[in-house]
Design a protein around this nucleic acid. Structure first.
Lengths: 129, 129
DNA sequence: TAACTGTTATACTATGAATATAACAGTTAG
DNA sequence: CTAACTGTTATATTCATAGTATAACAGTTA
């Protein structure tokens, strides 16, 4: 999978890595059981430190997106990513709330906001980003 | 307006301040022309440093939510917050995308995600948080 | 044995968040 | 005029996080 980092961004590199891999899973480009590069090779390919990659992998493991075996290496979770529970939805609402609030202040209607979210969803249904 | 900060949160204090004031505007509790406390008094009330409040105010000013006059003090922008332009919507999409991607991985349907956004919108239409 | 794997430990630099003081310049009430 | 406020700026310090650098350990595999 192609990894494209923005070293000028405010978003930390390891967080960009996490997001891009999740994005790859959402786009079905990465499927259950698929292998990911080792921390050293990926770090070397991108030109960053191995610890930065490891930090991203650890977070992805923690959140159930990947499995890390001593022997098999790093793979997308074979049994699929854990489905959203109430706790996840609660945190999701907590994260989305500020964006909704600002949008309301800027007179973005509920309908327009919803259409915007749908348009984002569509970029994943198509099968390519 | 009531300010409630979480000092244990990962979200910086000044960012929480920004979000809560925007939230107050979205809830119509803060209306165009309304006064906000001085940096010193608000900092004193909350028990934080004046620079932390100032940082939040500067960001709110930069984004068009408030005006700061030497004499009149700090007021919610009298002519209203600048409406969303294409650039804002572009940035909004860029921020929402990772949440959509993770939700797709966790099998949150587009319909469910949309309903979730609508439920957030409703908490503002009611007039209280 | 050699080359790989994830993992851990340590140390360093850089940046941002938050605080602490202090001062400057302007406004306003007594 | 003085005193108390206003926003603003400057400087310094502490602390946490991001990122890098190097090294080593333990297990796997060709």
């Amino acid at each position: 999978m192609l990894i494209n980092l923005d070293f000028e961004s405010d978003e930390p590199i390891y967080q960009q890595l996490v997001h891009q891999i999740i994005d790859g899973i959402a786009r079905k480009e990465l499927q259950p059981g698929d292998s990911l590069p080792s921390v050293r090779s990926l770090a070397s390919d991108i030109g960053i430190n191995l610890h930065t990659v490891n930090k991203a992998y650890q977070q992805l493991k923690q959140e159930g997106f990947i499995q890390i075996h001593r022997q098999k290496g790093v793979v997308i979770h074979p049994e699929g990513v854990p489905k959203a529970d109430e706790d996840y939805k609660k945190r999701l609402i907590h994260h989305l709330r500020p964006y909704v609030a600002e949008s309301i202040c800027r007179e973005v209607s509920e309908a327009e906001f919803v259409e915007l979210c749908k348009s984002i969803y569509k970029t994943y249904q198509g099968g390519h980003s």
